[in-house]
Design a protein around this nucleic acid. Sequence first.
DNA 1: TGTACATCAGTGAACGCGCGTTCACTGATGTAC
DNA 2: TGTACATCAGTGAACGCGCGTTCACTGATGTAC
Lengths: 232, 232
Amino acid sequence: MREPAADTSQRLLDAAEGLFADRGYDGVSIRDIAAAAGVNVAAINYHFGGKERLYQVILERVMTAKRDRYLAALRAPRKASDEGLEDLLRAFFRTHFDDTLKSERGASFIKLLVRELHEGSRERRQIIQEQLAPLWTEFGQALREVVPGLDEAAAAWVAGSLHGQLVHFTMRWHRAPAPLAGGDQPHLVQALFPPLAEDVDRYIEQAVAHIVRFAAAGIRAVAGGRPAKEPS
Amino acid sequence: MREPAADTSQRLLDAAEGLFADRGYDGVSIRDIAAAAGVNVAAINYHFGGKERLYQVILERVMTAKRDRYLAALRAPRKASDEGLEDLLRAFFRTHFDDTLKSERGASFIKLLVRELHEGSRERRQIIQEQLAPLWTEFGQALREVVPGLDEAAAAWVAGSLHGQLVHFTMRWHRAPAPLAGGDQPHLVQALFPPLAEDVDRYIEQAVAHIVRFAAAGIRAVAGGRPAKEPS
DNA sequence: TGTACATCAGTGAACGCGCGTTCACTGATGTAC
DNA sequence: TGTACATCAGTGAACGCGCGTTCACTGATGTAC
């Protein structure tokens, strides 16, 4: 009955990634992981030196993969048009929403990611930001190519504005179809700012359409417009 | 040596609020709380029926206070001007940043709030949203008064865009001046999209200026502009 | 080619700790008659 | 006005559980001579 089976550490990584994505670091015990991987609890310490270390290895593995997907989308040639900005935004946003809403694994992982970004230890945030930084840097450059008046500082603020919106609209969808426990009153459960939903694809369409129009105008204003007046 | 002392449950609430704000729900044990309040551990169960219940009472208490502060700012008369939208945005954003960046307690609590919003139990999110909903509803109305072409659905999407940006720029400041542990390499610690900082007040000025300009243009585009073209 | 030993992946059981909760109790303050 | 009892705020110690980690061990696979 001895399986050939991928080696233990690989099985641990795969099993743990799914569990961590679904339930978060604290929501998963090493006994859960060991059981899911079909190995002994002690194997986690043997191969990775502890739960935290295993988690960080997974975090890094997932982040580099994510970064590569996004960079590929950024670098894909876009047809030249007089709406270069809109096209760039659309390509980027669509990649993000597809990645975080349509893929099962990606959907689970984005929640974990947002949490780590907001309140993870410095070590964990470091891992995430090392992957995110080049991604947003490259996006900022693409942005500046396509809207000439945008200086570097402004591009950084714009990146912040975009990131904030992406996170919000992603999490808004994830919050919406919460599994109804028995005896619940679904009409009481009101997600934040109900941009309505129907199915994922329509939601993504709406979100992308809104955010492209909103952000394109915002970016052009930040790039070219006169500074907003301060109150007297 | 018997103090007159506020009654136990009040002391528990006050002590627990600070601890929860600083370290989160899981980061605080009921022994910590009892010690900080100077009472017996069993008092938490006696007065509140458990740790979770105590937490929810605090969450509700803080949220209603927050909602009231924001509503007051929204309702404060703004001088009539041809920049009604900008004025409205500025008043709202400034209130938010003052509340979450300048006040010690508010600064701690916003982290906890963001976490609960993203991954709290349904019960906890319910508490938060019951306070946030009227706030954003009223903001949406004010918005629509000041920019006539904006329909209700668009206003909801705009609210999402604004909320996302507020959260991002708030958390970005909180992440920045992370306490340096001994032996750390500060230059490695790079916060997300470094809109630079200096002191809180300057950061707030910059953030408000950016987001007002960016959002005002975005809102006007969403309200009046032609729909963005879909890719062929 | 054979033997002795070292290394390595992996195991099963136990350890120790911190946690939220519970239990039996105390002393002070109502309340009924 | 006095007495018996009930209620209440609050306590100290113990309980039971789940957790991550550690320990002593096994069996298979190199490696040296």
